[in-house]
Nucleic acid binder design. Sequence first.
DNA 1: CACCTCGGTACACACGTGTGCAACCAAACG
DNA 2: CGTTTGGTTGCACACGTGTGTACCGAGGTG
Lengths: 335, 335
Amino acid sequence: MPSPVSIKDLATAAGVSHSTVSRAIRGAGRVSAATRARILTLAREMGYYPNEAARSLVMGRTKTIGVVVTTIGDPFVTQVVNGIEDAAHEAGYSVFLSSSRNQADREMAVVRVFRQRRVDAVIVTSSRVGSLYGDALAEFGVPIVLINSQHEGRYLYSIAVDDTQGAELAVEHLLQLGHRRIGHIGSETRSVSCKRRKAGYRQALARRAVTPDPSLSVLPQAANDLSAGRLGLEMLLPANPSAIFAYNDVIAIGALLEARKQGIAIPDQVSLMGFDDIEATEFVTPTLTTVRQPKADMGRAAVEMVLALLKGDEVSNRWLPGELVVRESTTACPW
Amino acid sequence: MPSPVSIKDLATAAGVSHSTVSRAIRGAGRVSAATRARILTLAREMGYYPNEAARSLVMGRTKTIGVVVTTIGDPFVTQVVNGIEDAAHEAGYSVFLSSSRNQADREMAVVRVFRQRRVDAVIVTSSRVGSLYGDALAEFGVPIVLINSQHEGRYLYSIAVDDTQGAELAVEHLLQLGHRRIGHIGSETRSVSCKRRKAGYRQALARRAVTPDPSLSVLPQAANDLSAGRLGLEMLLPANPSAIFAYNDVIAIGALLEARKQGIAIPDQVSLMGFDDIEATEFVTPTLTTVRQPKADMGRAAVEMVLALLKGDEVSNRWLPGELVVRESTTACPW
DNA sequence: CACCTCGGTACACACGTGTGCAACCAAACG
DNA sequence: CGTTTGGTTGCACACGTGTGTACCGAGGTG
C-alpha cells in the first residue's frame, strides 16, 4: 500500500519548488513552457493526483454536491439522480448520495454529515422537507435546490414538473378521444402536486365546457401505492366514467390491476392514464398512456441552478413541461 | 453567507487552545469533564461542525467510499446502492456515486476522480470491469469490492449471488410442478453468470434424471433487454416446452409479452420464471415467479467487506443464496 | 553603464484539524 | 515546606495545496 505521491514528491523529483508544480498543474500563473511540460510528464509517470481534500481546505470549496433522496428505490428518484450525476460530472463536481427514508433522525443526520463535508450545495428530491429539516438546511447557508418538493419556501429554490400543464395535456388527450365522463383519482400523501394536477384536470374540462361531476373526482385514503389505485377505481365505478386520469402511474397501475380483476376491459370499456412515465408503464398490459416527467432533465436543471447560485447569479424557480406519451391504455370513447 | 465556524473560533470563545477543543470534541484525550461539557454546549450553540476535509488531510483517510455503477437507472443497481448507502451511513462513511455508462472514458474519469478524492475504498456494481479499467483500479491501491461482476481477478474481491444455487432452485420448482420439458433462455451479454445459471439448470435436471434436450436451451443474439426475451421465446417454441426458465426477469418479461402476442396462455400452457426479482415482476400479468437476489444485502455485504479490508482482516469472496419467490406465472404441468 | 521591466521561480503563510511533547498546576506525600 | 505525581492544557508541528510577495536574471532603453 504505497501512500499517494504528493506535490512535494513531485517537486523534488522535478527539481523545483512545490509552488511551481502547483502552478504548472493548474495551468495558471507564470511558468515556462519547458518546465511545465517536464512537470506534467513527470506527474503522469509518477501517478500524481492532486489531493482534493487539501485543495478544498485552502480553496474553501469542495466541488461537491450533496443529494438527498427519500429512497433510491423509487424509480422516479433514480432517473433524477441519473441526470444530476451526469451534469455534476460534466461540471467537475462529485455527488454525495444519502437517503433519508422519510425518517426525521436520518434527515437530521444527513444534514449534519453534509455540513461536516462542507458540500457546496444540496439537492433534495421528492421530499416533504418538514419544517424542522428545512430550517436546519436553510441555516446551513449553502444553496439548496428542491426537486418536485411538496414544500413551498421563500429561501429555497425549486425545480418541478409543471403539474397543471401536464394534467391539462392528459385530460385534453382524453377529450380529443371523445371522452366526456373523465374520472380522476388523487393522492392524499402528496397534496401540493395533487392539487395542481386536479386544477389542470378542471381547467382542461372547463376549456371544452364540460361541467365537472364531483362524483368523478375521488381521493382514496391509502398509501401512495398500488392499493390507492385499486381503492380509487372502486370509488369511481358508481359514477360510470369512460376514462380515468390517475394522479400517477403507480396509482394508475393499481387501478388497472383492479379493473382486470373486476372484468373491466381497458381500454375498450374504460381508458386509463397515469402521470410520471415510470419504467413499469411498458411492462403492464395494456401498456400505459401517461404524461412523461422529464426526470433526467430535472436533475440536470437542478445542477445548472446550483451552479448559477454558486456563481452568485439571480435565479428563479423553474417548471419543466410534461410530455404526452400515448400507449395502449387509452382509446376512443365507446359511447 | 456566514463562513462556517472553525475550531479556532470555538477555542477563543471557550478561552482555551484549539487542541483542547479537538480533544474535547473527539472525546479522546485528557480533558477535564467540566471543560469538555462547556466546549460541547458552546459548540452546539455556535453551530460548530468539524471540517471533514481538514480531518481527512491530517488523518490520511476520508471516511468515504466510491461507488461505481454502470447506470443508476438499472432497477437491480438501485437496490444494491440502497444497501450500500445504508450500511455505509451506519459505519460513518459517506458515498460518492458515479456512473460509468459502460463508456471507457467515463470509467477512467471516475477512477481519476476517486483517486483525487482519496476515497478509502471502491465498490463496483454489475460491470464488465474491462482489463484497462481493472488495472487502473488495482494500481489505485485501495480495497476494491465487485458486486455481481463478470470479472474474475486475483487482486479483486467480490460479492455475488449464487447463480448456480439460484438456478437450481428455479428449475427444481418447475420440476416439482411436474414439468419435464423445461426450456432455458440465456443472455449473450453477461456470459459468466449466464454460464453459471445454465450449469444450475443442468444440475437440477440431472438430479431428477431428466435428460437435457439441446434444443430446449437457446441463446438469443440480442441486447440484454425485452427483445432478447421475445426472440428467445420464438427460438424455443419449436422445441415445445411446458415451462421456461429465463436468465433474468427482463428477458422473462420479454418472453411473456411475446407469448401474449402469439396467443400462448401463461401459465396455463407454458409456465415461466425469471431471475433477479425486479420491481416490474409485480406489475406484469400474470405476476412473475422468480428467484430473488438479495440486492440490499449484497450492498451491505460489500460494505462489510470493505470495512474488514480497511481493518486489515483477511477476507474471501462471498456468494449469497437466491430465494424462490412464487407468483402467478408458474403452475402444474398441463400434460 | 545604470536603470527598468518582465518572465520565471522560491519563500512563507494560510486553510482546519490531530497529536507528541513540554509546561503548568494542584494535590498528595515525605 | 519541598518533592513527587498525575491530571490538564498549550505549543508547535504536520497533513497537501494555493497564492501573495520577494528575489533573480535577462533583455531592453536611456
